[in-house]
Design a protein around this nucleic acid. Sequence first.
DNA 1: GTCGGCCTACTCGGATAGTACGTGTCCGAGTGAAACGGG
DNA 2: CCCGTTTCACTCGGACACGTACTATCCGAGTAGGCCGAC
Lengths: 158, 158
Amino acid sequence: MMMSEGVEWALHCCLNLAFLGPGTAVPGARLAAFHELPPVYLHKQMQALVRAGIVSSTPGRRGGFQLARDPAHITLMDVVAAVEGQEPAFRCTEIRSQGPSGSGGTTQAICTIEAAMRKAEMAWRRALAEQTLADLMATVERRYPATPRRISSWFAAG
Amino acid sequence: MMMSEGVEWALHCCLNLAFLGPGTAVPGARLAAFHELPPVYLHKQMQALVRAGIVSSTPGRRGGFQLARDPAHITLMDVVAAVEGQEPAFRCTEIRSQGPSGSGGTTQAICTIEAAMRKAEMAWRRALAEQTLADLMATVERRYPATPRRISSWFAAG
DNA sequence: GTCGGCCTACTCGGATAGTACGTGTCCGAGTGAAACGGG
DNA sequence: CCCGTTTCACTCGGACACGTACTATCCGAGTAGGCCGAC
């Protein structure tokens, strides 16, 4: 159960876009160069973010990507779901109703194991949904005050 | 980020073994037949459980698998970790230190994104570690009182 | 009848192919800025 | 000098190969029960 590598990239890129503020479209290639990532593959992840409505893309010569909403309204859950998909990690295939032991017609309402796993997964999703990009920005600014300036100046120097 | 199907199988099998109680070794083939699972592949998952010390295997003619400890001391986290592995789902590859923006020599202590993701994953792991096989047994007995008897009688009728 | 040895069937254990998804890549459609020419 | 047109470089968007990990499987090592024969 390994999370896609694109999740990490997408989070970093979203955070960078958040620091740059609205109104500035950053090309995918430049976004990739910032962390020396494969440009085209990062592009793919960006498309997923666009489809999810997290970032907006503007085509054309001075086009690029930028956050579609306020960082305070973008949760980590949004980003993870956009890249990884909406389906839960644990999927119950109802094997308990298979085989000679199966309850056959009288299907039991709830699979206890599924309920337990879902409970844990909900805790994970809630922890992700509680953290927004704005929270991460605040943490970075508190821990490394120089970082936001460095990011914006590097992208501005493009 | 889909969890391996073997996790579901392993959980169901562990719960069945828990209902059967200690002292009775169940062959892997019979354990698979209970839910009509591929016997050899389930066997593979069982080996992972043995390596993790969750179930003990006895070879030989009347051999089989049985729980290695009391169900109250086996958490869902143990089973999931045994099948899926110990590594966290989100792995930080430290891309922030790559590229022209990289802090270079002065590596920043903590990756904020990694910390946020790890926080969520810890919530997930904690929720799994809080639930034991004994808890699941109690839930099943309360919801479906007939199930434990059906399980033990089916396996006894082998 | 009892004991010892042997055999056989059954068990787990690790090493081996097939397949789906994540990884990496490519080229085409669309846009807007800049260059160019005419008035 | 100003305006309209054209060109073109640059952007995103979806369709196309490759590699790794999950899925599925096989056969070998080991054990213990059962059987057979001798005593």
